[in-house]
Amino acid sequence: MEKLSTEQLKKTASQVRRDILRMVHEVQSGHPGASLGCTEFFVALYFNQLNHNNDFKIEGKGEDLFFLSNGHISPVWYSVLARSGYFDTAELKTFRKINSRLQGHPATEEGLPGIRIASGSLGQGLSVAIGAAQAKKIDGDEGVVYALMGDGEQQEGQIWEAAMYAPHHKVDNLIATIDFNGQQIDGPTNVVMNLNDLKAKWEAFGWEVIDTLKGNDMESVLAGLEYARTLLGKGKPVLNLLHTEMGYGVDFMVGTHKWHGIAPSDEQLENALGQLEETLGDY
């Protein structure tokens, strides 16, 4: 697919945020906070970094693949997939409703293009991405595998099984990103279960770790992802610590765990949409 310029990416991000809010508002259910926080990452990935084909084939041979481990941020993924042409944007209005392909958490059973495995139960996506990366190596397929995890999700044991495995097996066609927003359902991560020095932990496990300090600044996110790609093929998997703010883009949602899993009211939606330019046309 054609790579968008930074300016185009920013415009797309504004529209994706509108989509997220309208989807969650319509069904009064879903997870807007981290969806808004990861919008720059998803837009930069799908509209600039990923070598992918929106004529979806699950095998993804020769393509770059993306796996979402923290499946609850499905709104941002669905919006970006639709805006990339995987399916019609009109389908976004079916999010979380009966008989929809847009399940609350991503699933393959309903055949939504762009989704290769179910996620939602946390801690599993990195293992899946590593497996997919190794399968590409067996085939001599030069596609890169991307994964996104939450930071609260770092509390799951399986993450560290996978963290130990990938460097041991030199899985160096993999870029895993952690949405480092410092929040989880019950509050700040350092109150709920302190992650302490996440960077040192991943480095100690043998990963090449980079920090993207401005995870809601399109130039920084893009630069981080571009730099990550240059580190591939050197015997180590790459970890991108993406420092984001939950709820970014809407003044009353930003920087708090309170919007992890609740929907805006009619008034709140109107207020939020007033802060986000409609750049590509609402669905």
Binding site: I58, E59, G60, K61, L65, F67, R116, I117, G123, Q124, G125, L126, S127, V128, A129, I130, G131, A132, A133, Q134, A135, K136, I138, D139, D141, G157, Q158, E161, A162, M164, Y165, H168, H169
Partner: peptide, 28 residues
């Protein structure tokens, strides 16, 4: 040897790896 993966004592990871490997047509 190129089609065999020692996972260590980490069964949860093994199930995820297998699922991921199956995506491009491998039969784990």
């Amino acid at each position: 040897p190129e089609r065999f993966f020692q996972v260590g004592i980490a069964e949860a990871n093994m199930m995820g790896l297998a699922a991921g490997m199956s995506i491009n047509g491998k039969i784990p």
